[in-house]
């Protein structure tokens, strides 16, 4: 399903429940100071007009202003960054400069809103994404090699199976 690939704003309920409650009022997008939230414009009537985040365009900076304005609580009114629960990021080690050994890059670690919680530097050298990652997509946005992918919450179960073969 197309909707399973969307990264939702912070506090979003499970995808199915989110879609039942989102009435496409757009208030989350209007309150976002970074322009992170865009509205789905595809041809799927179930997801049309619903908010999503495209990390490679503008990630979510976890200001947490959007959850409280959602009138239907499709976004639960959470305010703590650590509870954003949007998804999780994964590093493709075969593309990462640091793992590759060409350049010592720690851009993702430095820009992470949950630095030293969601991304830690193993042995001071290698970035490792932990279970504390909330899937804001900042690391994916800043990675110079585009070696990071943010996996939406709805796809986590399927994605975990795929990444277990060679992920971070």
């Amino acid at each position: 399903m197309i909707y399973e690939q969307m990264l939702r704003p912070p506090g979003a309920r499970g995808e199915r429940e989110f879609l039942k409650r989102c009435i496409q009022c757009g208030q989350c997008g209007q309150i976002c100071p970074y322009g992170s939230i865009v509205f789905e414009a595809g041809f799927n009537p179930e997801t049309f007009g619903t908010p999503r985040i495209a990390p490679r365009r503008v990630p979510c900076y976890l200001c947490m202003r959007c959850p409280p304005v959602c009138p239907t609580e499709a976004l639960l009114p959470v305010t703590a960054m650590a509870r954003a629960d949007m998804g999780i990021a994964r590093i493709d080690k075969s593309r990462c400069y640091t793992y590759e050994g060409s350049i010592f890059c720690k851009t993702c670690h430095e820009k992470c809103p949950l630095r030293n919680q969601a991304i830690v530097m193993e042995k001071g050298l290698f970035p490792v994404i932990t279970e504390a990652c909330v899937g804001c997509g900042v690391c994916e946005n800043v990675c110079p090699r585009k070696a990071i992918l943010t996996i939406p919450k709805a796809r986590l179960a399927a994605a975990r199976d795929r990444w277990d073969g060679g992920g971070a």
């Binding site: 039942k20 496409q24 757009g26 997008g29 209007q30 509205f39």
Partner: peptide, 23 residues
Amino acid sequence: LPPLLNLLSMPAYYSRLWQHVAL
């Protein structure tokens, strides 16, 4: 299902049009 009847709301399309233009 999601609120599909919203897809038939003409006044909503008018206001959403400007949201889309702005955002």
